[in-house]
Design a binder for these strands. Structure first.
Lengths: 171, 171
DNA sequence: CGGTAATGATTGAGATATAAAAGAGTTGGC
DNA sequence: GCCAACTCTTTTATATCTCAATCATTACCG
């Protein structure tokens, strides 16, 4: 039995005979992916079990909680870094459940303005509290300094990635 | 126009009046998620455009490339950190396309042993080379030292996450 | 031995993701 | 003012993904 769960999954990088360049880069990517997968998996299970909610739905509410005036769908799409076509059905369900509202703008009737309802805000706040605790639990065996250091480094990495990907406007 | 693409998406953490604890933890999670989303998005587009392939399919081949003797489906599932029910249809398509084979084990006929074909290995190697280059391109504005440091820190983080999540056996 | 429990894989339902095309509404050049 | 080009959202097609239920096989207990 090959029980390799703890391996570094370096089949992409650790072929000795191939001495693939980019070893460090590939490692970084695999570590990022592994950590993100582990964390999102745990969060997803917790949201499901404790709130019968999903992570994408929570993240959408989170964006709206920050914006009392509401957001247009395109902004939501950019901030959540998912396609607009994906937002629509999630919005539709959240509206049916009474957590948000959606109304066309008066200035530009192509645009849909999305707002949190009172109930949606309450639901979000309740979940956000737990969300923070879950993350705190997951990271409790990591030094605060390490957390800060990773935040710094990942912030720089994120900036590099965004700069080289003129996805949005110019920026 | 709220053009907040460059914001830190801290609606979960930056409410001043709430002074939410766990700020650093939430930030770390959001940075991890953002970086992973940006990288996987870029890789996905590249795989699609240049090889008409998807990232999960590539990652599956990668695991097999590392194991000449093949792997059982359950091992694949653990290593890729996705559910077994998800692996089956991906395997089925890869088999139809001739990149892998699947055969029940003689020792235990419940078990399916999956192997790369010669064609599958060639396809994988071709893609893996590009995969490394794409990552190298994405990270070219990051210092080597920073990359190494992140790898170290994320390795520790991954260990912590796995230890606290007795997902597999006892570990 | 025989029957129940456990294990590995598949199937099916529900949610989320992209990409591409279609629909609706604005805008700008003439 | 009118129509082509553009923008924002939705729709459609395809691909992952989880979870739960099911099927097939193996293991175990008396």
């Amino acid at each position: 039995m090959a029980s390799n769960v703890e391996s570094d999954d370096l089949s992409l990088a650790s072929k000795p005979e191939e001495a693939s360049e980019y070893r460090a880069e590939i490692r970084l990517w695999l570590r990022l992916l592994a950590c993100t997968t582990l964390i999102s998996g745990k969060l997803r299970r917790n949201f499901r079990e404790q709130f019968d909610f999903t992570l994408p739905r929570f993240e959408l509410l989170a964006q709206l909680d920050f914006e009392p005036g509401g957001l247009v769908l395109g902004e939501l799409s950019k901030r959540l870094m998912v396609s607009a076509g994906n937002i629509t059905p999630i919005l539709t369900r959240l509206i049916e459940e009474g957590y948000i509202t959606r109304a066309p703008s008066n200035l530009d009737r192509r645009v849909q303005i999305v707002c949190l309802t009172v109930e949606g805000r309450k639901k979000f706040r309740r979940m956000a509290k737990k969300h923070g605790q879950w993350l705190n639990d997951m990271f409790q065996d990591v030094d605060s300094e390490d957390i800060e250091a990773m935040v710094q480094q990942l912030s720089r990495l994120k900036k590099v990635l965004k700069d080289s990907e003129p996805d949005g406007a110019g920026k």
